[in-house]
Nucleic acid binder design. Structure first.
Length: 771
DNA sequence: CCCTGGAGCGC
DNA sequence: ATCTCTTCAGGCGCTCCAGGG
């Protein structure tokens, strides 16, 4: 744009945008933008922010978003279409101009905030490539240069870079794109080899400490630990020859290879820089510089592995990448084994980390446990180090790569807590803000540490409110906007029908708004009452927020769709491990048809870690169990036995609660009656009666249906489940155990005389265990 | 009901 | 007659959604 305006206005020295003096405008240049800037380093803050996605967590990378999240500065979004309108009056044009000037200020500010120049300068200095190329984010190229320099220094001759040829060889069999070359921008290809190990999580809610440990930069450390290098590992000449054979670890007698040496140097320099940062005399400026250097060293070391597996890299070496990940899996597995052999409860782990449920509320105990394990693990390796990474006071573990926790940190002896969320729908940008705020509320409640009943009450109440306010039109439009990124340009998508953001993008392009691969497209789902004919797909109901706002558009947000598809599923997933609610209950709170949410909870519940149960009160848990009735031998009356803590206990044992009896209940008699009760319940479970869960139907059967979990009654929409489920049997047996559990009763009672008797009974029992 | 493509996250 | 050299790229593991057959 700039160039064309300069030409139109005959601006002298236009070529000074770059550093090459040009006198002639060359119309033949299709893509002049970069060429004209030659000799200058171009910093594109949009790219820079994306490259630093580790720091910048933003829903989209628009200037407005980044200004808000990074600079805490509001920026008015002026839509592309409204711009011509600003040219109608001098004052509005002046306003637009000011807006543009302010944008340039924001861009500079952003660049400074993200420390783009210092960081890219460090990265470039390390790798020895061109600064301008670092700016455009050519990570693989940086690695290539670094290795070229390294091998050159070590007096190696490196292989030529394979020249990129249009892969006609493979195309011969395919015979597709006969038009215009058909250059398919390939998305993600299938994995070429195995990566990191992810442990099956023991799902559930943990309300005592979870200890998190992880290996310090695992892959760089493995390369050093096992001396993995192009020069040391024996691998096939062409990696295509034996694609699946994993090479052996090199002989330990071999000299350290170039790659491990390089990594050792990077790690060592980083250690030195971190040492400098501890100097109390260091000025803030120095500290900032050190920090940048430290970051650059870490990024460089960590990116080395990725480039080994990158097909188009000059130093592509699949066997090395395979060997590294394989060792990683082995190390994690061994660490889990070691922890478990020490009696620790490993609940999860991903690639380089393990999480341990400690079953204690004392942080000091956790630390001791961690130090102990750390010492044992580190004994096994030369360089590799595991480290305590975090203490989770409470944790909700839902799935692989999906969890949330309250992290405890010690700052000057003071304990501070913070919530950390990984992978949940909550952290994903493809859910609308309404969905986010509801999930956030639910998660805050669950992790609040308050009683389960209270928490569920608040969540149910909140959902009801959200349902009412949404249907009442009280929720602003902004909260319904969903953002999705475009991985390809709009016309390159094969399947347009099912992709709402592509549909919207195409209409935006038709209006002259530029949408390219990598951009984020906002949309809302609307009801379209004008077309009653064939049912529309979800994607066809997607509209740009501006289309919705357009007066007379006739569009309305599809509230029911939002409640059912955006609000309900994420909240249901969060609450899944929490006893006392389920998808159906949550749906009815939102005002949705609850009968459509049948969860196979009986199965799911049994897979849950039993820790969950720890927070349920006994009254709640045993509300539906059958009481144990014991018949007294003297008065022949049956009375419920409510447990040692509350029964009449004498020094000779439990007594009949009948008022004018009070005879001692002999232990053998209780024993027989208990055994009978247990057998009765197990039989009841084995009979396997199925019951329809629709209260209006109540069909009871033992037949198995081809309709699977559906009710046998063909007219009924309900689901059927075991009348007496696994969970119920378990609770029943747990209740029987609890009735006779002296230790527990002793712990929970405050009645002094009862305590005395119980502890006496406990002592007797340990003295004569057969009684 | 199974499979696929796509998106976006975790490491 | 001459200018220019354009792009263009880290890996795998794991949900979760929507649609087709």
């Amino acid at each position: 744009v700039l160039l064309h305006r300069m030409k139109a206005h005959k601006v002298d020295y236009w070529s000074r945008l770059g550093r090459l003096r040009r006198s002639q405008w060359v119309l033949a240049w299709e893509k002049v933008d970069r060429a004209v800037m030659s000799g200058r380093i171009v910093c594109d803050t949009y790219l820079a922010a994306k490259a630093r996605a580790d720091l910048v967590k933003s829903k989209s990378y628009s200037l407005t978003q980044l200004a808000r999240s990074q600079l805490e500065t509001p920026r008015e979004d002026i839509s592309f279409e409204s711009i011509p309108g600003y040219f109608k009056s001098a004052s509005s044009l002046a306003y637009l101009t000011e807006h543009c000037c302010f944008d340039t200020f924001l861009v500079i500010k952003l660049m400074s905030k993200l420390q783009v120049l210092p960081l890219t300068k460090q990265l470039t200095a390390l790798a020895g490539n061109l600064w301008g190329r670092t700016m455009t984010g050519a990570r693989a190229e940086r690695n290539e240069y670094l290795l070229l320099h390294e091998f050159h220094k070590a007096k190696f001759i490196v292989p030529d870079k394979a020249i990129y040829t249009s892969q006609r060889g493979a195309g011969a069999t395919q015979q597709d794109g006969d038009e215009d070359g058909g250059r398919k921008t390939e998305g993600r290809r299938k994995p070429a080899y195995a990566g990191g190990l992810v442990l099956e999580p023991k799902k559930g809610f943990y309300d005592k400490f979870v200890l998190m440990l992880d290996f310090n930069s695992l892959y760089p450390s493995i390369i050093q630990e096992y001396n993995i290098c192009f020069t040391t590992v024996n691998r096939p000449v062409r990696s295509d020859d034996n694609p699946d054979d994993e090479p052996d670890v090199p002989d330990s007698a071999l000299e350290t290879g170039t790659l491990p040496k390089l990594l050792a140097r990077l790690v060592d320099r980083r250690r030195q820089v971190k040492q400098l940062m501890k100097d109390p005399k260091a000025t803030p400026t120095e500290l900032a510089q050190y920090n940048i250097r430290q970051t650059a060293l870490k990024l460089t070391a960590n990116s080395m592995y990725g480039c080994l597996g990158f097909t188009n890299s000059r130093f592509y070496a699949k066997p090395l990448a395979m060997l590294i990940t394989s060792k990683g899996r082995e190390i994690l597995q061994n660490t889990v084994g070691l922890a478990e052999s020490k009696g620790l409860d490993v609940i999860y782990g991903d690639t380089d980390s393990i999480m341990i449920y400690t079953n204690t509320d004392s942080i000091d105990e956790v630390k001791t446990m961690g130090l102990d394990l750390k010492r044992e693990v580190n004994k096994r390796y030369r360089l590799l180090e595991i480290e305590m990474d975090a203490f989770y006071q409470r944790m909700l573990l839902l799935k692989k790569k999906k969890y949330a926790a309250i992290v405890v940190t010690e700052v000057n002896g003071q304990l501070k807590t913070k919530m950390e969320t990984k992978g949940l729908d909550l952290v994903r940008r493809d859910w609308c803000e309404l969905s986010h705020s509801v999930s956030e509320f639910a998660l805050n409640q669950i992790l609040s540490g308050d009683g389960r009943e209270e928490v569920l009450d608040r969540i149910h109440e909140y959902l009801a409110k959200v349902g009412r306010e949404t249907r009442g039109g009280l929720v602003p439009i902004e909260k319904f906007i969903i953002n999705k990124g475009m991985t390809k340009n709009a016309h390159e998508y094969a399947d347009v029908k099912s992709q709402p953001h592509v549909q919207v993008a195409k209409r935006m392009i038709a209006k002259g708004i530029s949408v390219r691969a990598g951009d984020t497209v906002p949309y809302v789902i609307c009801t379209d009452h004008t077309a009653q004919g064939p049912s529309k797909t979800m994607a066809e109901c997607a509209y740009h927020p501006d289309e919705l706002r357009q007066p007379g558009s006739g569009l309305k947000i599809d509230f029911e769709w939002y409640l059912a598809q955006q609000v309900h599923p994420p909240v249901a997933r969060l609450c899944a491990p929490i006893e006392g609610t389920d998808a159906g209950r949550l749906a009815s709170c939102l005002g949705l048809d609850a009968s459509r949410y049948h969860v196979a909870s009986a199965v799911a519940d049994m897979q849950q870690h039993t820790m969950l149960d720890a927070q349920i009160s006994d009254e709640e848990r045993f509300r539906n169990v059958d009481r144990l009735f014991v018949r007294c031998l003297r008065c022949n009356r049956s009375n419920p036995l409510i447990g040692v803590a509350l029964s009449k206990v004498g020094y000779r044992g439990l007594r009949c609660p009948e008022e004018n009896c009070g005879a001692v209940l002999p232990a053998p008699s209780i024993g027989f009656q208990l055994t009978a009760a247990i057998q009765q319940h197990i039989r009841r479970y084995q009979e396997g009666w199925l019951l329809c869960d629709d209260p209006a139907c109540q069909t009871r059967t033992r037949m198995l249906s081809v309709r699977r979990e559906k009710c046998m009654n063909a007219e009924c929409l309900g689901g059927k489940s075991l009348a007496f489920s696994d969970k119920m049997l378990y609770n029943q047996l747990l209740y029987f155990d609890r009735v006779f559990n002296y230790d527990r009763a002793l712990k929970h009672t405050t009645d002094e005389s009862l305590r005395g008797m119980l502890s006496w009974a406990t002592r007797c029992r340990s003295a004569a265990p057969c009684d």
